[in-house]
Write a protein that binds this DNA or RNA. Structure first.
Length: 291
DNA sequence: CGAAAGACCTGTGCGC
DNA sequence: TGCGCACAGGTCTTTC
């Protein structure tokens, strides 16, 4: 499941493979992959030059120049959803089973393919919006910075977090508060900080929030160092390779296995139509927990 | 406005 | 063998 570290792995691959190249063609093979577009990628993309590859949280985008000299005013924004892949493929190779969009370049080098089994992901051509701290695609201007951006303000996050009337995990997954954290790294960060997922945000001290932020940054940094987390072939880098951080997960997906810290069997709770994994001893349930 | 629930998707694995 | 169902879960939309 691509969260911040996995998307960053993909961004790095794209920066290496597509920056500076001019798009020759775009072909859409599934309408759902481009559902948020007003125009047609096949007519909007050709002739534009990829300036770089950027990321905020789980979104990534390719700023596009109209010609090699002009500044980028638009971008091709991508969200991988649950199962999206951006792959660099030699032209002429057979189509992948769930190939949704194909983008070729005028140098006849490797083409960019968007492959997505569950079709939660999408590509979107959009304007870039200049903001005080950073230029970002217009459609994601409402998303909070991720904890690795200089635009991320720890003090402001702490303030806003504690004003919420909700549980800590729900807040961690709220991309308007902090972006990039998904179900896996939320559970891992909470375990490291010894916090139960239902802990009411208003009961957290500034020190505990700092500890949680440090844990989130640490676990995502470690995951990035191992190429991200893959449970199957659904998450791969631009070369189709899996990461191996799943071996290092302490609680996520480890129901009934011993907690790496105290040996207590890990529990699984139903949470927001998904799962939360935690250690019953290290992360005791709060009396006034919030979902 | 914030909080929470529902909708959107397909492949896999399980019980019967 | 085959069927139905639970599960995986990020984000946008809807509802209160």
């Amino acid at each position: 499941m691509p969260e911040l570290p996995e998307v960053e792995v993909v961004r790095r691959g794209l920066a290496e493979w597509v920056a500076g190249r001019e798009i020759a063609s775009a072909k859409v093979l599934h309408p759902r992959a481009v559902r948020r577009n007003e125009g047609d990628l096949a007519s909007l993309l050709p002739g534009r030059v990829v300036a770089s590859a950027e990321r905020r949280g789980k979104y990534l985008w390719l700023p596009l120049r109209e010609d090699p000299e002009s500044p980028a005013e638009h971008a091709l924004l991508a969200h991988l959803g649950m199962s999206g892949q951006l792959l660099m493929i030699e032209p002429g190779k057979p189509a992948e089973k769930h190939l949704r969009v194909r983008i070729t370049f005028n140098d006849d080098g490797p083409e960019l393919r968007f492959v997505d089994q569950r079709t939660f992901g999408h590509l979107l051509f959009c304007p870039l919006a200049v903001r005080p701290l950073r230029t970002v695609p217009e459609p994601i201007a409402h998303i909070a910075p991720d904890p690795f951006e200089t635009a991320f303000d720890d003090a402001e996050f702490t303030l806003r977090l504690r004003k919420r009337l909700t549980g800590i995990k729900r807040a961690l997954l709220d991309q308007s508060l902090i972006s990039g954290v998904g179900n896996i790294y939320a559970d891992e960060a909470l375990w490291r900080a010894r916090l139960h997922w239902a802990r009411p945000t208003e009961t957290l001290t500034g020190g505990k929030v700092a500890e949680l932020l440090a844990a989130a940054r640490a676990v995502m940094t470690e995951a990035l160092g191992e190429g991200g987390t893959s449970f199957d072939r659904l998450y791969v880098n631009v070369n189709g390779e899996s990461g191996y951080f799943d071996r290092s997960l302490a609680v996520y997906g480890r129901r009934d296995e011993p907690c790496p810290r105290c040996g207590t069997p890990i529990r699984r709770d139903a949470f927001m139509n998904r799962s939360s994994y935690s250690c019953p001893k290290c992360q005791p349930r709060p009396r006034n927990g919030r979902w």
